[in-house]
Design a protein around this nucleic acid. Structure first.
Length: 269
DNA sequence: ATGGCGGATCTTATCCGA
């Protein structure tokens, strides 16, 4: 059996816990990384997931906004949360699971959205996003020789032209501006990461993980962006055998998340 | 530009997301 890791920006875990349970029962990932749980750690519905077999849980919550959690059927060790930009935002949690006889480090991120105006001199939220990316770069560039690592989550950047519905029309829209995509490319390159989703789904193919709530018909208009990612160090990337982006999840239930789950399967040696 | 929605809370109004 391969090791299966999933990531999903759930946009309120209390509202969509039943949907997550359905997802877990159907796709049976070993580890699920959640973003935008939008609750405190105390409010996280732990017992719901314990009952479903996900008894190992690492939660970094925050009232109303942001918040990340990693839940697992396998033991989680070395649970850590890093603070960025001297803020108390809950945007990262790291854990380890055993894979192939070695500890595999899993970083779960919720990168700031960045607001509307792509100018750091005018928009503090955009400045925060750029500063956050710079800190990510410094951190992982300093540790780029370490292997056995995965980083996942809502990076809030669609890096490639085929990661958005219209490259030309989104070049000045936050999430696809050159200053953001160049910083993300630098984090990937200097951190020695592999874009695992694009290893399996060619860059020539349009691919999205988020569709706005505001579109009349998300499926027909299909104006999406690939904001969610799974990256791995080369040793782990060489083990990946399958990647899925669950587009269908955007239509689940009466009130779906605006993001869909990503799943990666890693084979043992 | 899709921004015509949806989530949480200080709830019938406001902030935030992207």
């Amino acid at each position: 059996m391969p090791l299966t890791i999933a990531t999903w920006n759930i946009n309120s875990i209390r509202l969509r816990a039943p949907m997550v349970i359905d997802f877990l029962n159907r796709f049976k990932p070993d580890v699920l990384c959640l973003q935008e749980i939008k609750c405190t750690s105390e409010q996280f519905p732990s017992e719901t997931f314990t009952s479903a077999g996900y008894v190992h849980q690492a939660v970094h919550g925050q009232k109303s906004y942001h918040g990340v959690a990693t839940i697992s059927r396998l033991p989680l060790t070395e649970i850590n949360s890093r603070q960025f930009c001297n803020k108390q935002d809950a945007r990262h949690i790291s854990t380890r699971v055993q894979f192939d006889g070695n500890p595999l480090e899993i970083h779960n991120f919720y990168v700031p959205a960045g607001g509307d105006v792509p100018d750091p001199d005018v928009n503090d939220k955009f400045r925060h996003k750029l500063d956050f990316l710079d800190e990510m770069h410094q951190w992982f560039a300093a540790e780029n020789s370490r292997n056995s690592r995965v980083m996942v989550g809502d990076f809030n950047i669609a890096p490639h032209a085929n990661d958005v519905w219209s490259h030309k029309q989104l070049l000045k829209i936050v999430s696809h501006t050159p200053i953001e995509t160049e910083k993300l490319d630098l984090i990937l390159a200097d951190g020695n990461w592999v874009d695992l989703i694009r290893k399996h789904i060619p860059i020539e193919q349009k691919l999205y993980s988020w569709w706005s709530y505001r579109a009349r018909n998300w499926d027909i208009s299909d104006r999406g962006r690939r904001l969610d990612h799974i990256w791995a160090t080369p040793d782990i990337a060489s083990r990946s055998i399958r990647a899925q982006v669950l587009r269908e999840a955007r239509g689940w239930g009466e009130k779906p998340s605006d993001h869909v789950p990503l799943i990666i399967e890693l084979s043992h040696s």
